[in-house]
Design a protein around this nucleic acid. Structure first.
Lengths: 105, 105
DNA sequence: CTTACGCGTTAGCGATGGCTTACGCGAAGA
DNA sequence: TCTTCGCGTAAGCCATCGCTAACGCGTAAG
């Protein structure tokens, strides 16, 4: 409810992941991204809006252009969430190995 | 053509993330999950199929039931992918701080 | 001022996705 | 055996999503 759009949702689309991966390598402008992708410029704009709403990228006007870059905070949030999954899973795995319920393989 | 989609796509849906979070805490059966969620049992089955195709969960028959648990391998793959984003982003940030291009007031 | 460029936004369309209802199959329990 | 329980799957409906085309606004250059 209070959540905007989750970062998971933002990175769900393949095109959007490609855009994000390019921004991870180096910041760039909207038309710069559009020129390297098989979609139109407005499509890139819409994808960037989703990524921005999810807190994964930030934008800054630079003359006529508008430069987008990755927001470390949003990326860190995703990483933290995934780390919780990871640590819980590992904990469950450890106890499962120490106490095999029935059938040792 | 709905072959093994990315883990990102699998975790995009909110309901599916909830299912995955429950499995992270403890393995459970299909109807067990359905009882705790506001969706029907077939819906849970379909979600579990997506998670399974993405390599995030594994299933094992247990009598009449079928127990689903998190697959550490799939989770590790996602973690690795995210870590690449993270390290690249941090590297770009470090160089940006060490070499500020300009400082317009 | 006029022109050109870069972006964001909207409307509309086709495709994708999640959900329910209704079915069929296999594994316990009586 | 037959009956019940737990699951998976197919069909169909409806919402959402990604895309393009067209428009309007602000900035830089002529």
């Amino acid at each position: 409810m209070a959540y905007a759009k989750s970062g998971w949702t933002a990175l769900a689309d393949a095109t959007r992941r490609t855009i994000f991966e390019r921004l991870v390598d180096h910041p760039s402008s909207v038309s710069g991204l559009a020129r390297a992708l098989p979609v139109s410029r407005p499509a890139v704009s819409q994808h960037l809006r989703v990524l921005k709403d999810a807190g994964l990228v930030v934008d800054a006007p630079a003359g006529k252009q508008r430069i987008y870059r990755v927001d470390p905070a949003g990326l860190a949030a995703l990483r933290a969430e995934l780390d919780v999954f990871w640590s819980k899973t590992m904990a469950a795995y450890k106890t499962a190995i120490e106490q095999p319920p029935e059938e040792p393989k």
